[in-house]
Amino acid sequence: MRLSDQRTADFTSERERLVRLSYRMLGSVSEAEDVVQDAWLRWAGTEDEIGAPAAYLTRIVTRLCLDRMKSARARRETYVGPWLPEPLVETADAYETIADDVTVTLMVALERLSPLERAAFLLHEVFDVALTEVAVVLDREPAAVRQLASRARKNVQTARQRYSVGAAEAERIARAFFAASRDGDVAALSALLARDVEIHSDGGGKVLAFRNVVRGVERALRLFVSAHRKALTPPTFLRTAIIDGLSGYVSLDPSGALQTTALGIRESKIFAIYIVKNPDKLTHIRV
């Protein structure tokens, strides 16, 4: 096989993993695709023979992401309202076979980390890269990388917890929540929502959304009832989906605008609701 053909084959076999790594680093599907494309150009243009393609490509992608994270963090500081990652939407049947255990809950928690802590955590804890190799990727001493990974793990360990709920039950709850919120059904919502439920609604200043995180079932109920009363037309359910590892759905709001809703579920109760309405973050979603 020619070197160029082997390069293409090696890159193709790693591409899905590289896109997931980039997305977990940046929280943007479009930027992740751009990073992987840049990595391909560097990979294809390398004349030397590479003995460990996966490690080499991981190194390229991680460093490209770290460069982009500087400007991304600056944009977060001026972002209007709660920030959520661009939703990574998969079909509902992927619920029990997702490629990693990163959910939108963890993605939000990862925003608390420094870029190096985030990289160390994702590479070692999620993508199973040995700490010695992580040290090479980040160009840091192994001892320093161990500290980065340890600090990151402690910071996000609660958010990483996954709760056991079957695919059928998760889909049932997602459909029931859509119907209850559409109808302003207080009794049904009260049965579905945990007392400490949180609602994160990302409109980015582009569309109407909650400007702050809504906490507590009483406030959530008032908001859903108010939204139902004000809506001139009901929202439209499009399909169930897995959104960043959580059960949820894709829908149209009463104005006809696309949105995604991901639900954190524990013990058959919804403890977190993540609604992405910012149209800039939804261009990759199939209607």
Rank of each mutant, 00 (worst) to 15 (best):
G216Y: 05
V145F: 10
V250G: 08
A109F: 12
L18D: 01
E86A: 13
P53S: 14
L122N: 03
T283V: 07
G27P: 12
I243M: 07
A52S: 13
S190A: 08
Q147A: 04
D280I: 04
V129S: 00
T97P: 04
N212F: 15
A92G: 09
Q157D: 14
I173K: 08
Y79T: 00
G51L: 11
P85F: 03
L238T: 06
K154R: 15
D280K: 14
D5L: 15
V129L: 05
D34E: 09
V80I: 11
P235G: 02
F224V: 05
R17Q: 15
E111L: 13
I265A: 06
A109Y: 10
V108A: 10
V102G: 08
W43L: 05
A52T: 09
G264Y: 08
H124K: 05
S190K: 08
S4G: 09
V207P: 11
S71I: 01
T158A: 13
L123A: 01
V225N: 08
I50R: 11
V136P: 00
N278F: 06
W40K: 07
E77W: 02
G264S: 13
S4Q: 15
R59M: 05
S150N: 02
D244R: 07
Q37G: 14
V213S: 10
E267R: 14
A55N: 14
G205F: 15
V213K: 11
D5V: 11
A194W: 02
D38A: 15
A187Q: 11
L148C: 13
G184K: 05
G256W: 11
K269V: 00
T260D: 12
I243G: 02
P85Q: 04
A188S: 14
Y274A: 02
R2H: 10
L41R: 14
R7M: 01
E267S: 13
Q161L: 11
E33M: 13
V165W: 09
C65D: 02
A55Q: 15
L263T: 01
K154F: 12
E47W: 11
R42G: 10
V35S: 06
A39N: 08
E125R: 13
A220T: 13
T12M: 06
R182Q: 08
L106Y: 05
T236Y: 03
G248R: 03
V137Y: 02
R63D: 01
R76N: 00
S190H: 07
E14G: 05
G166T: 06
F178V: 00
H284V: 10
A194L: 02
G184Y: 03
M1I: 00
D244P: 12
A119R: 03
